[in-house]
């Protein structure tokens, strides 16, 4: 049940906003039906639907390798992983639906190219090692965000993220296990793993979002308990965890400026190529067109299936009423 969405022009907005922010400060969850600022709702719909779209589009680069997975075990794991991504998209669309937006509307926004999704999925998967690397780096980065969002003040989003976090840890681990195995494997396996790390490292850093100075929404999102950390904080956590592990695996990272800073305990990185990031976000990444085209095709080819079941259900209901 969509709640009451307050606008700054409402006479009681100031008072209600103060109550609302006090609830969040007390650690209460905001539930569907509760009062919330229209802007809170708008930001949530934007974030949650983008997040859902990312899961759904994210099925494509990895899904393409299910038919080429090199062992029974890897094939099984990859099907389960890509399936989880469908599940995560499903949970997230549900969370957004509690804010009064329909899945039909959200899909329309995705397929028409209006809605955004994570830039990372517009890069191609060129070899099998990309599958392990996506698990280790991309899911590793995603988990950082998801762990934070599991604390989110909006109940349905938080619950979806708790469920996703519980499932996602295996995605990260299977990837890490695979890349470390190949790093110690044959020369070809090793070269393949290194090449994949080289290609995915920077996009993984970028997927955590623009620098705080270019992220105008962040302060509001933090105050309303939607986010609890800034993009740069999350990115730093990600690098601190992953850089030493990758180096320890005997692989290198494609950043000549990368170094450990004793004073702060942080791994410092070189400049990120934000031109590339904005190009990909703006629709000009290597795979933007193909990804969207694949989604559109599946949607169009599934139309008759959705209609058939709707028709069957309608007829059954009529019969039930007639009886």
């Amino acid at each position: 049940m969509p709640g009451k969405f307050g606008k700054p022009t409402d006479p009681d907005y100031g008072e209600r906003l103060a109550e609302f922010e006090a609830r969040i400060a007390r650690g209460e969850k905001i539930e569907p039906g509760d009062w919330m600022p229209e802007e809170y709702r708008r930001q949530l719909v934007r974030m949650i639907s983008q997040h859902a779209h990312s899961e759904v589009v994210g099925m494509l680069p990895e899904g393409a390798w299910i038919t080429r997975a090199p062992s029974l075990k890897r094939k099984m794991i990859l099907i389960a992983k890509v399936q989880d991504e469908a599940g995560h998209g499903q949970y997230l669309y549900h969370a957004a639906e509690t804010l009064g937006v329909t899945r039909e509307e959200m899909l329309e926004a995705l397929l028409s190219g209006k809605a955004k999704y994570s830039s990372i999925f517009n890069y191609p998967t060129l070899t099998w090692a990309d599958i392990g690397t996506i698990g280790w780096l991309v899911d590793g980065a995603a988990i950082k965000n998801q762990t934070m969002l599991a604390q989110c003040s909006y109940g349905p989003y938080s619950r979806a993220m708790v469920r996703i976090c519980a499932e996602e840890t295996f995605h990260h681990k299977q990837g890490k296990e695979m890349v470390i195995l190949y790093a110690k494997g044959t020369p070809k396996q090793r070269a393949m793993a290194q090449d994949a790390i080289n290609r995915w490292w920077w996009p993984a850093l970028m997927m955590l979002g623009p620098h705080d100075s270019d992220s105008p929404n962040t302060p509001t999102l933090v105050r309303w308990g939607i986010k609890t950390k800034t993009n740069d904080q999350v990115r730093q956590e990600f690098i601190n965890e992953h850089a030493p592990e990758i180096l320890e695996a005997g692989l290198t990272l494609p950043d000549p400026d990368l170094r450990y800073d004793e004073a702060t305990g942080n791994w410092l990185h070189g400049p990120i190529n934000w031109d590339e990031f904005w190009a990909v976000v703006g629709g000009n990444g290597p795979m933007n067109k193909e990804r969207l085209e694949a989604r559109r095709r599946a949607h169009a080819e599934g139309a008759w299936v959705r209609e058939a079941l709707a028709a069957y259900a309608a007829r059954r209901q009529q019969t039930a009423v007639a009886v």
């Binding site: 075990k73 099984m76 794991i77 389960a80 989880d84 988990i143 762990t147 708790v162 976090c165 519980a166 499932e167 840890t169 295996f170 990260h172 681990k173 299977q174 890490k176 296990e177 470390i180 965890e241 592990e245």
Partner: peptide
């Protein structure tokens, strides 16, 4: 069991940070 992180025994560094399992 392949959907559970405990299946990937050799890499344990982060198990503690995500205590919940599948």
């Amino acid at each position: 069991t392949y959907k559970q992180q405990s299946y990937y025994g050799l890499v344990g560094a982060h198990a503690g940070k995500h205590k919940r399992t599948q």
